[in-house]
Design a protein around this nucleic acid. Structure first.
Lengths: 205, 205
DNA sequence: GATTGATTGTCAAGTGACTTGAATTAGCAT
DNA sequence: ATGCTAATTCAAGTCACTTGACAATCAATC
């Protein structure tokens, strides 16, 4: 009938370990992909076979501890965060008015600006997303530069956005995209509060 | 000396047509990919060979007009938009009401949905960003899965968002984040139009 | 300390998406 | 037509990844 009843003793947590394996695998995979590595590349670097990696990523097999260690080392992470709790269901939706508000260090981020976190701070996230609230007359501190890409949408108000050596005047509903390597900053030029929905990827690859 | 001097007469615009071919191809490719189609799938639907598509997408060949027409038809775009200048203002700012609108293929993307491109098609972009406009009663076609991460903000209206096995009811101002590998879809449950500002990082790259 | 048994790990063959090159066909000017 | 260019196809090739059968490893038991 049954090809195997070999695991007689362990049926109980069969499924749960299976899904947790899958989660580990998924993270490893994302981690690898984010770094633009191919299976083969990572396998070579971590000194194991491509096929093993494939199986690990798909939860068919659980890597030995030394193996896992080599993997996260190459990936530049640590084992701990491979197991960090996924933000799960609760981590998906965030209601208007129920998002954490961050008082900004005026020195670092500028005058009259507060940030509303749309994506909670957590190692699992690629994207960063905040709603910038800028009081009338407020402006961000000096130009910032970093790798990645930025996209934003003006939810309300009017601002002046400076990117590179260009200046734009935006009003509600306007949007923008640019490479984060360009120096950029902004200023509220209206007499009411302005809000920008702002997303950026840190990654360049 | 030279194996070919066959193109004697046309050397002048050689390079410019080459790059414009590439741009067309890039757009077609992005278009196809964002719809989750494989080369073969699109080729079958548009009644041409896989390899032709590949060449077109990589700018090795320029499609005949009828060919191109069939392609954009299947993709739910129009030819014009394949050639639309991606400039906005310096490619950075895009004004409300001046963003390209895409009619979606109802079969693939769902009923009563149209997309407003916030980030123009262009090879240089990591992020994808659209405003999804969903008519009352409209809903996206079956769940989609791909690698990456999604973040969105409900600009207006009320929707029901399904992610994994959870369902959420969102109203204006609510936001969400999740891993694209979770199957997800949505439905407009209000009696007015709903609009979602939606950003995602694509898979592989 | 060998024997058994499960499980990690490897090799090699398989698949699916995409690309390339040679051969064919359709368009079009002469 | 005739000849030439350029679009299109077919088949073979590549690349990333997956799968299955076998080998090595490790741990518990006799």
């Amino acid at each position: 009938m049954n090809k195997i009843d070999t695991h007689t003793s362990k049926g109980s947590d069969e499924r749960s370990t299976a899904t947790s394996l899958l989660r580990l695998g998924t993270r490893l995979k994302l981690s690898r992909q984010t770094r633009g590595l191919t299976l083969k590349a990572l396998a070579d670097a971590a000194n194991c076979s491509e096929s093993l990696l494939s199986k690990v990523e798909n939860g068919k097999v659980s890597p030995s501890l030394p193996m896992l260690h080599r993997l996260v080392e190459v990936l530049g992470t640590n084992i701990g965060w491979m197991f960090e709790e996924a933000d799960g269901e609760e981590g998906i939706v965030f209601r208007a008015g129920a998002r954490p508000l961050i008082a900004l260090d005026p020195l670092r981020r500028g005058e009259g600006i507060s940030l509303e976190r749309v994506i909670p701070y957590s190692p699992g996230h690629l994207l960063q997303c905040n709603i910038h609230h800028i009081e009338a007359g407020g402006e961000s501190a000096g130009p910032i530069q970093h790798a990645g890409e930025e996209v934003g949408y003006l939810l309300e108000g009017a601002i002046e956005l400076m990117v590179g050596d260009k200046t734009f005047r935006l009003t509600t509903g306007d949007s923008f995209v640019f490479n984060s390597e360009l120096p950029h900053w902004y200023r509220n030029v209206g007499d009411e509060r302005a809000s920008i929905f702002w997303v950026n990827t840190p990654a360049t690859f």
